[in-house]
Amino acid sequence: MSSSIRTAWVAFATFLLLLAGWWGVAAIAPSSYLPTPLAIFERLVYFVVEGGLLDDLVSTMINIAAGFFIAAALGIASGLIMGVSRLGRDTIGFFVDVFQSAPSAALVPIIVVILGFGREAMITIVVIFCYFIIAVSTAAGARSIESGLHDMSATFGASRWLFFRKVLVPGSMPMIIVGLRLAMARAFNGGILAELLISIRGFGGKMMYFGGAFDFASLYALIAVALVLTFASMAVISLVGRQLIRWT
């Protein structure tokens, strides 16, 4: 049995155990904030059959995807610059270090003033949530390229463009993928949080609605959907990433 399959089984068994524990507690001491897994599952089935969730989900996913790709482009580009250029590190790197710890949610009012309550604002929030981790890991990846490969490229007269394509980008790729994977989780966080904070709509809006109505079974069902989608998106990045770095 390969180790990744073993990991999957152990994780699944742990999940079942937690689920059983939850179910036991919910059955012994029923309360509104701890519905049984069955109740949550029934809500989930209802949402799927009814289809009322789909529009909101698609709308939110568009924000998440758009924000993620913009952040990926910006993060990889600036990360590579920080990785190879002293000037890049001293200029961009400094601000990335400072702002990555800034409370992103606190920026929401400013973004709303500038961009309004529409999609642009929500996408911007997703970008802010994702950008830093991508930039920082890309820079770390670029810096991890052995000095021997720099020397080799120099002695054989590789142009800057060739170095970029054949050395810098592939050499940074393992860390770029790590960054994108972590950023994907943050993109879902940012996308849903944006809807909670800016305007009650989309998937986050639905969460806000059920939470306000104390319909916790529905809320948990939505959270479960978000978790599954996040996990699936991260898995896609891992799978695609593994194809890109088969040389490791």
């Binding site: 490969l149 020397d151 080799m152 002695t155 054989f156 590789a158 142009s159 054949k166 050395v167 592939p170």
Partner: peptide, 29 residues
């Protein structure tokens, strides 16, 4: 560096993501 001088490195300095052929091709940049 100049094309009239070529170097062989102690730690090989091969691009791990390129085939043997492509590594040699890279040297002719």
């Amino acid at each position: 560096p100049g094309p009239e001088r070529a170097m062989v490195f102690q730690d090989f300095a091969l691009l791990p993501w390129q085939s043997a052929l492509e590594n040699v091709v890279f040297g002719m940049a």
